[in-house]
Structures are given as C-alpha cells and as structure tokens.
Design a protein around this nucleic acid. Structure first.
Length: 501
RNA sequence: GAUUCCGUAGCUCAGCUGGUAGAGCAAUACACUUUUAAUGUAUGGGUCCUGGGUUCGAGUCCCAGCGGGAUCACCA
C-alpha cells in the first residue's frame, strides 16, 4: 500500500463522495468541445457574437471562491482561461448541491472539468467564461504544484530538475514554456521533413537492431535475440544502411534515426538521441554545405520568423551564406600558426607552444583535432563551416580531390558546438577496406570505439556506389540551440534517469 | 569516471555555536455574488533522502550509501 499524504487521503474521500452523489468521476462518454482557450482570448473582442455558446474542457489551475460566486482558471492544451461560476446559474432550482458541495468542496485544483457558457469581460477587463453548466471529467488524486504568477513574475515555480524530468507530465501541466520547447522541436523536424520531401528524397527506415554496428566511432549497447540465439547491437548510426540504399539505386534517402551509444552522460549527451542522416547521389560536400545553410536558415525562420536566434548570452544569425574555413585556416586564424605543411614532430612542437596537451600516442590527425578543439571550436559562435579534416579521423569519408592527407569533410559549428557532420562519401571499395583494416588495428590496440569491419557493406560498395554526399545532424543539439535550452534533458521529453531506489 | 554543491510539509524555501521542527502558497472550517499572487479569521499537515557513528541530546557534526544539479574528461 502506497503512503498517502493528508491531501491525497482527502482527495480520495472527495472521490467517494462524488460517487455517492451519483457523479461518475471518470465518465466514459465524450465531452463535446467547440472552442479552445486561445481562440477565445484571441478572437472574442473581434467577434463577440461567436462566443455565446462555448463548450470547453480543461484542468482547474486556480480557484477563488467568494461565497455564492467563484472564479477559477482552467487550462486546456492551448493555455488558460478564467471561468466565472455563479451558484444560482448552475443550480437554477432549490438544490444547490452542484455548487455548494461538488464545486466548492469536492473539486480541487488539478481536476478536469467540462463547462458550457458564454464569454464576457469582467469589470477588471479579463475575458472570461460565464458558466451555465459544469461536468466532472476526471478527479485528480495528487495535489498539483501551485505556480502563481503576477505581472510576468512567477512565484513558487516548480523547477527541481529531478522531479521535472522524472514526472514530465507534471512539468508539462504547470510549466507552459516547457510545452512550447517540445512543440518547437516537432516543428523543427517537420520543417526538415518537408524540405527534404520537396526535394524528392525518400524517407526510409533501417534496422535499429544490427548484427554489426557501424557508421560512427562509439561503444554500442549489446542485446541478445533468443530464437536466433545471437548477439545484436542497438545502432550507433544508420550510415552504412543508407549507403546500401544508394547502391541499390535510390538517389536521395534520409532517416530520422534514434541512435544509442553506451557512453557517459552530460548536458550534451543522453544514451539515446536522434540524428537525421541524409545521402544524395552524384553530389559532393560543397553541394551539401549549400543544402545545410538553406535548411537550417529555413528552420530558424519557421520557428522564430527571423534568422536571428538568441542562445544564452549570444545572438546567432543563421542567414546565408555562413563563413567557411578549412581546419588549417581556422587554426591559423585563432593561433597565428600555419600548420598546413608540418610533419608530426613539428606538429607536436607547435601543439606544445600553443599550450595544447597531446598524448605521446596521438597520431598526426588527432593532434590537429586537439588543436582545433581546444583553440578554435568554442570561439565559433556564428554558424561556420569547418572543412577538410585529417584522413585518420574519418574512415568513411573520401580522400580530398587535391589535398593529400585530408578528406572532403565538413562540420558546421555554432555556439561553440558541432551541429552537423558531412562528407563526400568514400565509394572506393578498396580504399574503404583499407580504412576498416586500420580501424581493426586501432581496436586491437585497445580503442573500444574503433569501427568493426562490415563485410556486407564492403560487398555493397564493390557493386558500385555513385559519388554521394552524406550528412548527419544531431536533432537534440540543434533543438537546444533553436529553443535556447542549456541541457539536452530539456529537449527530451523523457531523458534517461537512474531509477529512484 | 573526477571534482563540487544540494536533498526539511503537496510546491517554493528558512532553520545561527548541537537543545522537542518553521514561513508563504496549497489543504481543512467559516465569511464573502465581477475576483485575479483575491481577502479575513481559525485549524490540521513531517521517515528532516537512507544507514551507521560522536553526544546526555543530531535536521544541524563525522563516515558510508542512494538520488539529483553544475563543471571537467570521452563523445553527437
């Protein structure tokens, strides 16, 4: 038996009382709603005649009882609206039970009711609904956190992160701004989907349970299939499957992919997260940069009506064109050192001079990556493309058409963080096999994030994949920027949490 | 994983050098027919995260654990 607080016991008693009065606290039949709170508040003053007979349902959020008349606020999916309940209006006869007992005593903040009535404006000027009938739709058994508000100031906000994430339903009820973040997240996904569909690309679904995981450097979750009696891995990326589809003759495919990585958690990392990956045949990474600019600019416009987005202290402008730097140019720009022709010994020396600590085991590519990560990335606030990465770090990207040791790869950096990763895809099957073999070597040396060799993927490439541009965008990260949220947990409805006791 | 801060009523938070647990909102009762953080009067409500220890006595001090936040590391 669960432990009940005083208030929870009282609510259960009220529930019993309602039933004794012949009122079903959880009725089965639909309640006809003909308007939303937001629509009334928006349009009532424009056309008052339309709101003589409104029927609306919502949760009781506040109550102000003044004898034989009361005000309350009810909240529906779109917002809150005040209702005015007069005893003799909802109880026209001798029997005043519905008002005196049901409304005043047995109903609580948090209960859901349906009302009918007409809209009017109170003496203080607030658009309200004058209630003519009231129906109980759902009795709530837990007291709701009470958040009060005046002149834009909030009092006693429900803000303990642990409770908010564990009981997101409560968070959504009492913190309307939270709901708005998730509406924007869906708008963001819709904008992308519409944009890509309009270009004629096909949204597809590929396996989440994979016998061989691939497409990224990460540690996977491992699971087991009972009937087949074999291990399966939850995908860390869908890249290799989408490229198989390009081999198969689709010219453009994309997937919003839930990926799973068995790694540490932080305000930027949840064990499961969402990426979109896109592959388009006969294109290269320059072409893909144009697409990213256009699509992300469109997202900003659709969400905010402007390309200018506030993120923390910064104002970020997504208007095209974005700045483009090669990785070497970026390092030269921020450190004054030109590393483009350095060998490994010189690079090690340069890193030391910059104050970048590099492990003796790191190869050339990793040293460059460390320099960029420590000296440049966090300074890139406005959206910027960084291009042409060392080949060692990009086993699935095509070698650069003119620069030895580099690949045709770019990342878009924004607010000091990567928001996408893209390359001209490696379609030379012999080169790809060599790269996988280098990864195997890394794995043997103890790198538990090294890629495994996927023989079937190589087989596909050997049939021939057209030149292809590929792209991955972290949806959670992009949503954080577009909605100005500090933590990934604030853009995931149900972030991963340890069970409580 | 490391460092650091936090955990007290349904919610937001006080609680001093250790001395029987406090406020506002919410709840209960009464009053009040256009209020709005409604108001007035009265009342009830606690496993002080858990387990040890020190002490005559622990919400408070010490140790361990659980959960959470922040920062750092790996990573998207």
């Amino acid at each position: 038996m669960q432990h009940l607080s005083e208030q929870e016991i009282l609510r259960r008693k009220s529930l019993e009382e309602l039933i004794k009065l012949g009122i079903d606290p959880y009725p089965a039949e639909l309640f006809k709603v003909n308007v939303s709170s937001a629509e009334i508040l928006k349009n009532y003053n424009i056309n008052k005649l339309d709101y003589k007979n409104v029927s609306i349902a919502g949760r009781i959020m506040t109550r102000r009882v003044m004898g034989n008349a009361s005000f309350a606020e009810i909240q529906d999916a779109e917002g809150k609206i005040q209702i005015y309940i007069k005893r003799d209006e909802i109880c026209p006869g001798e029997d005043k039970t519905l008002y005196n007992t049901v409304f005043k005593k047995l109903l609580d903040i948090g209960d859901i009711i349906g009302i009918e009535g007409y809209v009017f404006t109170t003496q203080v000027g607030e658009i309200s609904i004058h209630v003519s009938s009231l129906k109980v739709l759902c009795k709530s058994l837990h007291p709701l956190p009470i958040v009060k508000e005046k002149d834009g100031q909030t009092f006693d906000a429900f803000e303990d992160p642990e409770q908010r994430y564990r009981q997101r339903y409560v968070d959504l009820i009492v913190n309307p701004a939270v709901k708005d973040v998730f509406i924007k997240r869906t708008q963001l996904v819709n904008t992308m989907r519409n944009y890509l569909n309009n270009k004629g690309y096909l949204e597809v679904e590929t396996p989440i349970l994979q016998p061989i995981y691939g497409g990224a450097a990460a540690r996977p979750f491992k699971t087991h299939h009972n009937t087949l009696d074999m291990p399966l891995y939850m995908r860390i990326a869908n890249e290799l499957y989408l490229k198989r589809l390009i081999v198969g003759g689709f010219d453009g495919v994309y997937e919003f992919s839930k990926d799973f990585r068995n790694e540490g958690m932080s305000r930027f990392h949840n064990p499961e997260f969402t990426q979109i990956e896109l592959y388009v045949a006969y294109k290269d990474y320059y072409w893909m940069m144009d697409l990213v600019e256009e699509m992300v600019e469109k997202i900003a416009m659709d969400l905010h009506g402007t390309t200018e987005v506030k993120v923390g202290e910064n104002s970020i402008n997504f208007q095209r064109p974005w700045k483009r730097f090669t990785m070497f140019e970026a390092i030269q720009h921020y450190t004054g050192v030109d590393i483009s022709n350095m060998d490994e010994t010189q690079l090690r020396e340069a890193a030391k001079n910059m104050g970048v600590h590099v492990d003796a085991k790191l190869g050339k590519g990793k040293i460059i990556d460390e320099m960029f990560g420590e000296k440049c990335e966090h300074l890139l606030i406005q959206p910027t493309f960084i291009t042409d990465y060392p080949v060692e770090m990009s086993p699935l990207a095509k070698k650069h058409r003119s620069k030895a040791g580099l690949v045709e790869r770019f990342e878009a950096i924004c607010n000091g963080k990567e928001i996408c990763n893209s390359f001209s895809e490696l379609n030379d099957p012999i080169d790809q096999r060599q790269r996988f073999e280098e990864q195997l070597e890394l794995g043997k040396r103890g790198d538990d994030e090294a890629m495994v060799l996927d023989e079937d993927f190589l087989n596909a490439l050997e049939y021939g994949m057209p030149p292809t541009a590929g792209l991955g965008i972290g949806i959670d990260r992009l949503t954080m920027i577009m909605t100005n949220q500090h933590s990934i947990q604030d853009v995931l409805l149900f972030p991963q949490m340890k069970p409580k006791k």
